[in-house]
């Protein structure tokens, strides 16, 4: 479904990504791990178009995304749940979800939030509240809910557990797994909780200083000691 080949990104001389290639198939769960500064967030931004690559290609259903305007990419069924949540703080929870469904209008007649409220009942309780007044965990749920409101085929999640308490992070993880399992949405996950991410994925990539240093199935990665070296330096 998504194929990235030889993707490079540089900001003012700094190489954030060099020649990164990866692929994700329909309905698959792919995890991308690596220490801070490895270029994971840059990769996501390049896919959704808020960062311009210096080389390479990103093909989605055989179509070159780099030739597609950033805002138009969401309409193709790609949803990006950004790092740090980035909810619309001055809009209500419901309005945030409506904005999430902005790109869904062409593809479904009436977006329904039932699935979202079933996954995260707290959002229904707070639907009239301004998103800026939610707790960190609730904002993360809203950000994910806003992502799936567009009825995506590919859901990109950037560090969904960042800054959350372990219990809330566990809950979010479980819901992501459910989305993949029950709704058949392809998931591209960037995550700092390496063990959980690698364990639940079909395939994983390890990024270090802008390069793919390791790739393999969940089991192969768990058996490889190089992940530990990348993270801990020892």
């Amino acid at each position: 479904m998504l194929e990235i080949a030889g993707l490079s990104v540089a900001y003012g001389g700094l190489h954030a990504l060099s020649e990164v290639s990866l692929a994700i198939g329909e309905g698959k769960f792919v995890a991308i791990v690596g220490p801070n500064g490895a270029g994971k967030t840059t990769l996501f931004k390049a896919i959704s178009g808020t960062v311009a690559p210096t080389g390479g290609s990103i093909r989605y259903d055989g179509r070159e995304l780099l030739a597609t305007a950033p805002a138009a990419r969401a309409h193709l069924g790609i949803a990006h749940v950004p790092e740090g949540r980035q909810v619309f703080a001055s809009l209500s929870v419901l309005e945030n979800l409506e904005m999430g469904a902005y790109a869904a209008r062409e593809r479904t007649r009436r977006p329904s939030f039932e699935r979202i409220f079933a996954l995260f009942p707290v959002l229904f309780e707070r639907r009239r509240q301004l998103a800026g007044t939610l707790s960190g965990g609730e904002q993360q749920m809203l950000a994910i809910g806003r992502g799936i409101a567009s009825m995506p085929r590919l859901l990109m999640l950037d560090e969904p557990s960042m800054g959350l308490s372990p219990a809330v992070a566990d809950l979010i993880f479980e819901r992501i797994a459910a989305l993949h399992r029950e709704d058949g949405i392809a998931i591209l996950l960037v995550e700092q909780r390496v063990a959980e991410a690698v364990q639940s994925c079909d395939f994983g990539y390890v990024l270090e200083t802008g390069r793919v240093v390791l790739a393999g199935s969940s089991a192969a990665l768990l058996a490889d000691d190089r992940i530990r070296t990348v993270y801990l330096g020892l």
Binding site: R193, A195, E196, A197, Q199, Y231, L232, G233, L234
Partner: peptide
Amino acid sequence: PREVMADPAVIEAYLGKKWAAI
């Protein structure tokens, strides 16, 4: 550095609490 990077709490913070178990 050596002590710290062998500390289970640090490994958990970096690689997730399930890492050791897995």
